[in-house]
Write a protein that binds this DNA or RNA. Structure first.
Lengths: 224, 224
DNA sequence: CTCCTCATATGATCGGAGTGACATGCGTCA
DNA sequence: TGACGCATGTCACTCCGATCATATGAGGAG
């Protein structure tokens, strides 16, 4: 059984056989960068688990500006909200890289939840953790300035997607600066300035859709 | 059985007998305005349901400023996060009015979740809804200016706590302007200006810890 | 290999909103 | 009932960050 799936909340409480059975009942979806899994307003009764790649969850304001709620990677869940609390999708999910997902419909999940309470409990934990993260992001929007939020976002991405290298922690976030700006709720220009400033101080090195963090300590201090 | 409790997610899936039994296993807590139920950092293994009154969930930044995550009223749940995703409390809960709550410990909840999967499912729905609301608030922080956020907050409070009167919808929010400012992530002065402006236009009337909404249509338009 | 387009970089300008400083109002408690 | 303390109302001043404008660079399509 796939290691990535075993780390997903949906599979956490199941033994190997049960996990294999659940996996068999899920349908595979593949997207190229830029393609959307679903759009804000769509009817939603399907949940997905990321197997490979990254997906962004985002919304548009009436006047066309974009805000990114989250970047989701392997083992993470997308679209649960419309399943647990029935209703249309309140955000759009778009692939940041080539991405592979497994989808599960409402009709297949409910029996599982009734049959195996541990699964519900694992999902409660997962969604509680998400709510905590979201609350943290909200506090940052209120308390921190843009450079602080950029530093925080990079550290967060580094914890989740970073790999150590000889120069520092290499973080292939797959976000354009425009997207990074949407993630921290600021303009592209301001984010660019913050990044350039950090790079100038030697705290990090900029690469295409990636950064190398070289002084996590300073960045971390700047983020508070 | 109390009507307020029957509307709480925790009780939604139970029949009268089961609800009465659950209620009996919960301990009553009473607080006066200003008293805290728990503080950020406290170990947390208890969940509460508001029976009467209002409670605010808030956090302090390192430099002492405050941010309010939510105002919770009757039937709503507080402190679930530390229960579902074990860990210290990530916010402080403080009474906005005299308040009556019922508390349930981790040790009493888990057996219930295992025995009655419908309870978990109801809780998943409740927390999913909370996450949706939080995402909405986050988008507003990014997209709307302060007057817009104030209008939005008042409309939200009115939907939850408003009662129709001959002049308009009377909303006893029990928040000082300082607290309202913390709720929308702005300074007291700016919120005061927005309120004075709305009042000057005849959209609402200011009262002590309350407002009377007289032109919901305009306020609603201003909030978008 | 060469455009063309999209991403990145950087400066100039402007405005919303925070800060600080007061004045006023009002509820509550001795 | 008087007075203190907290909440509210309103300035002037400053500044962060959005917006506009304009390079420069780099990857893809032909």
């Amino acid at each position: 059984m796939d290691d990535v799936l075993r780390r997903a909340a949906l599979f956490a409480a199941l033994d190997d056989d049960q996990a294999a059975e659940l996996r068999a009942s899920m349908t595979e979806v593949t997207l190229a960068r830029g393609e959307s899994l679903f759009h804000e307003g769509d009817p939603g009764d399907r949940l997905y688990v990321v197997v490979e790649g990254k997906v962004k969850l985002h919304r548009a304001s009436p006047d066309g500006r974009e805000n990114m709620l989250a970047v989701l990677g392997p083992s993470e869940m997308i679209g649960e909200l419309s399943l647990f609390d029935p209703g249309p999708r309140t955000a759009t999910a778009t692939a940041l890289t080539e991405v592979k997902l497994l989808g599960l419909g409402h009709g297949d999940l409910l029996p599982l939840l009734h049959a195996r309470p541990e699964v519900s409990i694992a999902l409660l934990r997962a969604i509680a953790r998400r709510l905590r993260r979201t609350n943290d992001v909200m506090s940052d929007l209120v308390f921190s300035d843009v450079p602080g939020r950029v530093a925080k976002a990079l550290l967060d991405l580094s914890r989740r997607f970073g790999v150590p290298s000889d120069e520092g922690i290499h973080v292939a976030h797959d976000l354009t600066q425009e997207e990074l700006a949407q993630l921290v709720g600021a303009s592209r220009e301001t984010v660019n300035k913050a990044l350039a400033d950090f790079a100038g101080r030697g705290w990090l090195k900029l690469e295409a859709r990636a950064v190398v963090l070289m002084d996590v300590e300073r960045l971390s201090r700047r983020s508070r």
